[in-house]
Structures are given as C-alpha cells and as structure tokens.
Design a protein around this nucleic acid. Structure first.
Length: 825
RNA sequence: GGGCGGGUGGUGGAAUUGGUAUACACGUAGGACUUAAAAUCCUAUGACCGUAAGGUUGUGAGGGUUCAAGUCCCUCCCCGCCCACCA
C-alpha cells in the first residue's frame, strides 16, 4: 500500500526518537579512526527556519551521512549565532528581554531542526549568547590586547544612524549598512579595533592553499585584501618644511604629474592653509565634503570637486612647482591620503583637470596614435606605450619603466618602493546591548586595564532598559559600569560597548571540538584531531566578512599555539539561493514557503529529496510544488517495492528474459558507481538522485515469476542497494525500509556504503552508432572483442549504412572503441 | 570600469570532458483501472515536412579547426553575481 501523510509522519517521528534515544550521531575524538568534520554556517536564531536554511543543512547532512556510511568518524555539530540586533528590536517591540526572546527562539529553532532529521551531535549544541561561550570571546580579546592586536584609537568611523552603532568596513555595502540598508555616515569616535592588517600578507598568501574553495570566493577575498605594489613619492611643499607623501602604482608616469591632490581629511591641509588667504574657502570645502554621505562620495559617476589651496609642491624628478588641491575624489583611508595627478594617464585625474582647466602632459605614447596631443585627447590613455617627455627614460616601454623609475627614485631618495593594502583594521566596538561585553576597565590612575582572566566572564546584566534611543544601553547600568580597578583597586569604569557579533562566529568551529569545556577555550588535542573543518557549507554572502574573520582568528590562535592548522576550512561549498517565481525567497518580498507546512504535508524526506534533485547545490533553486509531488511519488514507489518484495502473493510486474538478470545486476552496479562518484567528484546530488531513479526503474521492469524464482536474491540485492544509496538523502524512509527488510543492524546510518564491481558494468554485446559523413545512419550490435576487419564488414553490410557508403568510396574509416564508427566517403 | 559565473525542449536540468544532444524528473496529450474522481499504471512528447518509411533542422548569434563541436579557437550579443573615484 502507498503510504499516507499520516504514515510518513509516524515513520519520521519514530526514527527521530530512535536517533535521539540511541545518540546515534554522538561522536568522540578517536585518533585511531579517520575523522571528517562537516559544518554548516550556524544560524541566527530568528525562531523559524526558512528554505535557505533547509537547503544549506540538507546539503551538509547528506554529506555527513555519506561519510558516516563510508566509515568516517563524522563531527556534524549545530549551534546558534545568537547575539545581535534583532533581539534588541524585538525586545523594544514586545517589551520583553532580549535574552528571553532569544532563548525562546532557540528552543523553537531546535525543534524545527529536529523535525528535519539532521544528523547532528546534539550534545555539542551551543549558543554564542551563553556566558560559557562568550567568556571565551573575552578571553581571546584579552589575548589579542596583550599582543597589541586589540587596540583603541580615535578615528573617523562608519556610523549607521538607524542602528545607532559603528560598523566595520566589511559591513558597509555600497555605502549602506549591511543590515538595515541605511546610508552610512562618518563620525569621529574612539573605538576598539582588531589589527587584522597584521595578518594581511598571510591571509592573501594562504588563499593559494584553498584549492577546494570556489575560485570566486578566493578572488573576492584577494580583491578585498587588495595588495598593490608601488612607490611612495615625497613631494616637498614649496616655501615650507612640510613634505607630502603620495602613493602611486604608476611611477612610470611621474614626469606627467601636473598637480597634487589631498583628501579633505588630510592633516596637512589645515596646516598648510592656516593664516593664508585660502584658509576660509578651504575649510568651507572640507565641511561641505564631510556632510556628503560615504555612498555618494564613493560612487564613481559623481562629479569630482576640489579647490586650489594656494600652495605648490615640488616634483622631485624635475623640480617643477605644481599646484596642490584638495579633492573629494581622494580618500583618506587608502594609501597616504594624497595623490600625484597625471591627467593624461588616469581617467579620474583627466576629468578633474578638464573641469578645472589644469595643465596636462603626455608621457606615454600610444603606439596606435603617436601624434595625439593634449588638445585632442578626450580620455586618459591608460594602456601600454613608450615613455616621452620623461628625461633619461624616454623611449623606455612603460612596463619596464615602472621598475626602473621606482628603483631610480629610491636610489635618489625621491621616494621609496612600498606595498599598500586595501584591508583596514577591523572596528569591533558596537554601542549595543545584546553582545559580548568588551572586557576592559578604565582607571583614572592606571589607564586601560584588561579584566583579569579569573574574573571572566564579564556577564551581561539582565535587567536593562532597551529603549532604542541611542548610546550604549550598558552605559546606563550603574552596577555594571562602576567597578574596581584590577590593578590599584580604586573606583574605575567599565567599557560599555559590546563586540561585533562577527567576533562570535570567528571561532565557533573550534568550540564545537569540545563544546562545553569549562576549563579551557577548547581542548587542544580534540581540536588537533577534528580541525580543520573538512567541508564547510554556507551562503556566498559571507564570502568576505565571516570567512575572512574566521581565517584571521585561526591564524591568531595558531600563533598562540592552540591549533595546528593555519586555515580553518579545507573545502567550501557556497549553496545557491532559493527562488520563487524567479525572485529570491524572502520575507520582505512575501514569497516565502514555510518549511513547516511542507513538512506536515510531505515530511522531511520528500522535502530533502526535492531540494537536492531540483538543482546542483551551488546553483539557484527555483521552488516548484509539482517537483515536490514528484519526489513524494518516487519515495512512495521505492517504499512499495520493499513492501511487495515481502508479500509472496504479489509479483513485481515487467518482463523477464535471460538478459534481465544481467541487466538488473549491471544497473545495480552502475547506480552504486554513479552515486558514489557524485559524492566523491563535486557533490552533484541532482544526478545522484537521477541514478537512484534509474535503478528503481530497472527494478520495476524486472519480473520474478515461476521461471526464475531462484533469482530472488538478485532482486533482493538490487532493492537493498537502492535503500542503502537512498539513506543519506531520505534517512527516515530508508531506516524504515531497512527494518522492513529484516536487517539486524539497528540503524542504516552506520551500515557500510555498498561497493560496485567494474566487471559487472560490462555487457556481452554493445550497440554502437555508425556515422557517414558525420551523420548517424545506423545502430549496430557488436561484441566488445570484435576485430576491426570484422567491424568494417558488419558496418558496410548494414542496409542503413550501405545506402550512403560503398566500400570503393571510403576515404576514411575511424573507429572509436565501444562508442561509434565514423565513415568518410 | 574590473573580476567570476552563465545562455541546451513547454519547465528544472543531463551529457562519461572532442564521440549517437536533451539522461532523470516535471508538465502536457492519449489510453488502462473506476459508477465517477483522486491515486496508480501504460504509451507518446525538441521543432519542421510526411499517412508512413523516412528526411531536414536543432545547444544565444556569426565564423573557424576537425571524420566528428553544447564542449576547442576567434568575433559579437544577452543575463546573473561580486567589487569599484583603491591612486
């Protein structure tokens, strides 16, 4: 009988209870067994899981279950990235406490994950908002502080007016807050930073080791870290002792520099104009630029604005005095905050120079257009050419001149060869409540003092008014703020900012190795055994943020001697988005499908199977309820095969011939081969499932009747193989069927993955195609050991071939063994 | 502007890496079972011409290499994602 929705619910609940009662997926570090660590990017506990989660975790679960059947000791943990603003917003809205709200969501999420039947080691479940977890955030922070990697500095920072907090560079997307999409503004504040820039060289270099990451993720990180080779050139300010340093990657154009531009925030600007006629105008310009939002200033199509500050700089290579400008297109954060402008060979400088009628000089000749002059240029020439108007370097190809001029300038002390990074230090202070308190104390006498290790954790106070009115909520809690200085014991003040939540997720994969260790951040030997994560799975949106931070933390913890690996994630899979009606499924679009509803109608196995079958894991997935129906039908069909196999009164329909046994055996072996391949050669689960279906079709066609009762074992074996191959994809139904087949193993999850026999894949006769002049004209049946002469004879005697090709007319006779014959006439 | 992916039936997607394009599924049509419907099963299904046998054509467009191209080379068009006044 086909099963019903009710049956499937019972089956799934029963096996979920079984796994729980038997702790089927609990693992311990065991150095005698090969390990495999599968990890999905843990969720923010919003309460309900969405289809994106389901897809992410299903992919991970299938891999975990396959590896278990392959005999690996598989670590597959889950937890909750539980700090963050939504809890505060919910607290304001519902007049609850962020902690209560979050823990309620976690419970709900936990139950939903259980209903999906994921193979987690639930003993390792953790939440970053637990004091037993964030205590170690504080511990890491202090370790970083002790090594000068956590420091406080005053600077112009990204500020989201809506979230009322500062943001890291990585959290500003196109000038907007990554969370609420509000335009980010700049503010001068004193904040805590992590010195990720110290690791920039190894973060860049080690990308090479990540061969099993998608190349685009590596490319994105490489661009973000942004290493540029160039020269820092010293321009002396005329009639002054000041020097302006500019950074350029184009030293070959130095003879074409016709002015210098400083960023409005550059400290020399105010210094150089103080007391001059241009002072007022310059200050007004700086003020005007500061009021522009970052997104506006950073967009390339913006009209460039600037102002001459009344001073000149000396180009060291030719002693020319060139005007100094302040311009909004120069950014203080990059390079030295000052540039030399070569309008003829840089498009931005060209636009600026045209606008302000500034002089230009061509120094690189376009080989295709050697007579071009400054007057008839309509854009900068940025391609290769030979140098002109460049003194002793004339006629040098510019690529060669880059190196020559750089070395020459260094020798003459006009500048120094240097490398600049685009990566900035990581601003981690947040003026929010629901996060890890930064474990620092300010003492009037002793300065900034870290909280002693034995006093950790610095716990978040429970009773706090969350008003959303701005400022750190913790600053209003007197009992939290007021403390004694750990050094001198006098009254002191606690830091009231909390850490960015990306801090929490930068090392959770290590905590999973010994999730509830009360003595240490994690057990070193356990981490040694489990790390690195063999397969990490998550969304592409974390290509830079989380993945870069996690790599940084791993490198830092390696330097502390706590971990042995220098990269945390060996292999990365970025799953595609889930779409509905061509658009990303999201709450704001209102086009979501609730996994819970699908679950109650079809069960977890059907949902899992559909999601895996509809598209390869990395591609977008278009939601299709008809496809869901198809997955349901397939599982039902397999279930009935197992059922019928046990009722002797019924026979499987179909045909039986002498070839049928061999065909069934071949299809069985082929399915094992192809499904195994799909796991071992880049997770193509959609084709893996298609091969399950092919095997099911073959079983359906095979018939047991009085003629071959003795062959029952072949059928049994084929069905058994089908059940085993289905187990990672549809674990509940597979368990049920395994039990129905009277197997003694308690759980199919630990049964060895089937092997295949390459010999059984061979057929006694093969069908090959015969092409004449590139067109297929016949299908002929031959034996695999057929000789070339014989093959030729068979081909030409085929009526379909003979119609187009006679022996006499043959120019070429090409044989592709076991595939086809191509005849040219 | 730079980087990375893509473009295959009515739909989701296959194609052993140069070897019979469209596996598997969805959808659709016809049939069986049924009083009927659902479910299930069977058959057909790229397009065009043809009663049929069969033929022609077909992987974004155009050209090339080859006995043979979805796959390799050149030119171009379109779509998606990421980055971007980065000096």
């Amino acid at each position: 009988m086909p099963y019903t929705t009710n049956d499937i619910r019972n089956i799934e609940t029963r096996w979920q209870k079984f796994w729980e009662a038997h702790r089927t997926f609990h693992v311990e570090a065991d150095p005698s067994a090969p390990k495999y660590y599968v990890l999905e990017m843990f969720p923010y506990p919003s309460g309900k899981i969405h289809m994106g989660h389901v897809r992410n975790y299903t992919i991970a679960d299938v891999i975990a279950r396959y590896k278990m059947m392959r005999g690996f000791n598989v670590l597959h943990p889950i937890g909750y990235d539980a700090f963050g603003q939504p809890a505060e917003n919910a607290a304001i809205k519902n007049k609850t406490n962020p902690a209560d709200w979050t823990y309620r969501c976690i419970t709900q999420m936990h139950d939903e994950l259980k209903k999906m039947g994921f193979s987690y080691d639930w003993d390792r479940e953790l939440s970053t908002c637990d004091a037993e977890y964030y205590k170690w955030n504080q511990w890491i922070f202090i370790k970083m502080f002790e090594r000068g990697l956590a420091y406080k500095k005053a600077s112009s920072v990204n500020w989201c007016p809506d979230c009322e907090t500062t943001l890291a560079n990585e959290e500003v997307i196109n000038g907007l807050c990554w969370r609420c999409k509000t335009a980010v503004v700049q503010k001068d504040l004193e904040q805590w930073y992590l010195k990720i820039t110290q690791y920039a060289p190894s973060l860049l270099e080690d990308l090479k080791k990540l061969e099993q990451w998608p190349s685009r993720v590596r490319a994105m990180q490489e661009n973000w870290i942004g290493k540029s080779y160039g020269v820092e050139i010293h321009f002396k300010v005329k009639d002054s002792t000041e020097t302006i340093n500019v950074f350029t990657t184009r030293p070959d154009t130095i003879f074409g520099a016709t002015y210098v531009v400083l960023a409005p925030e550059h400290p020399l600007v105010k210094k150089m104009t103080a007391g001059t006629a241009q002072e007022k105008e310059t200050l007004e310009f700086i003020e005007k630029t500061a009021n522009k939002s970052k997104s506006l200033r950073m967009s390339g199509d913006q009209r460039k604005e600037g102002i001459f500050i009344g001073r000149h700089a000396i180009n060291p290579v030719n002693n020319e005095a060139i005007p100094i400008f302040v311009g909004d297109y120069v950014l203080m954060e990059y390079g030295t905050g000052a540039i030399m402008a070569v309008p003829t060979h840089d498009q931005r400088d060209f636009e600026f120079a045209q606008q302000y009628k500034l002089p230009m000089r061509i120094v690189i000749q376009d080989p295709k257009n050697p007579s071009v002059s400054v007057e008839n240029m309509n854009e900068a020439y940025i391609d290769e050419g030979v140098l002109i108007n460049s003194g002793e370097f004339d006629k040098t190809p510019n690529e060669e001149a880059k190196k020559k001029i750089a070395e020459w300038m260094q020798l003459k002390r006009f500048g120094k060869i240097s490398i600049h990074w685009r990566l900035r230090d990581w601003l981690i202070s947040r003026q929010r409540y629901w996060g890890t308190p930064i474990p620092m104390i300010y003492c009037a006498a002793c300065g900034v003092v870290p909280v002693p290790y034995h006093q950790l954790p610095v716990e978040l106070p429970k009773d706090v008014q969350i008003t959303g009115e701005g400022g750190s909520p913790l600053a209003r809690v007197r009992t939290f703020v007021e403390c004694a200085c750990p050094k001198c014991g006098k009254p002191a003040r606690r830091e009231t900012d909390t850490m960015a939540t990306f801090f929490d997720s930068s090392w959770y994969f290590l905590r999973f190795c010994s999730a509830h260790n009360a003595q240490e951040i994690f057990d070193k030997s356990e981490a040694q055994y489990w790390m690195p994560v063999d397969q990490y799975i998550g969304g592409i949106e974390h290509a830079i943020l989380h993945l870069l931070y996690a790599r940084f933390f791993t490198k830092f913890l390696k330097d502390l001697g706590l971990v042995a690996c220098d990269e945390p994630f060996t292999r990365l899979l970025t799953q595609g988005m889930v779409l509905k009606d061509g658009e990303v499924m999201s709450k704001s679009r209102g086009n979501t499908v609730d996994p819970d509803e699908v679950l109650s109608q079809y069960g977890a196995d059907t949902l899992r199977l559909f999601i895996l079958f509809a598209a390869p894991p990395e591609d977008q997935l278009e939601w299709n309820s008809d496809g869901l129906e198809g997955a349901w039908r397939f599982l039902n069909r397999v279930y009935q095969m197992v059922e019928k196999r046990h009722s002797k009164s019924q026979t499987l329909k179909g045909f039986h011939s002498d070839d049928a046994d061999a065909t069934l055996e071949r299809e069985r072996n082929n399915a094992v081969k192809r499904v195994t391949q799909s796991f071992e050669e880049g997770y193509k689960f959609n084709t893996a499932i298609s091969h399950l279906m092919v095997l099911a079709n073959a079983i359906d066609k095979y018939k047991i009747d009085s003629a071959n009762l003795g062959k029952q074992h072949l059928l049994n074996q084929a069905i058994e193989t089908l059940v085993l191959l289905s187990a990672p994809f549809a674990p509940h139904v597979a368990e049920e069927m395994w039990q129905m087949m009277g197997k003694t193993e308690a759980t199919v999850a630990r049964v060895a993955w089937p092997d295949f026999d390459e010999k059984a894949l061979k057929t006694s006769t093969i069908v090959i195609a015969v092409q004449v002049n590139g067109r297929v004209r016949a299908q002929i049946q031959i034996t695999p050991d057929c000789s070339p002469e014989e093959l030729r004879k068979i081909c030409l005697s085929d009526p379909g071939v003979a119609k187009y090709a006679q022996e006499a007319a043959i120019k070429k006779f090409i044989v592709v063994p076991n595939k086809l014959v191509s005849i040219v006439v």
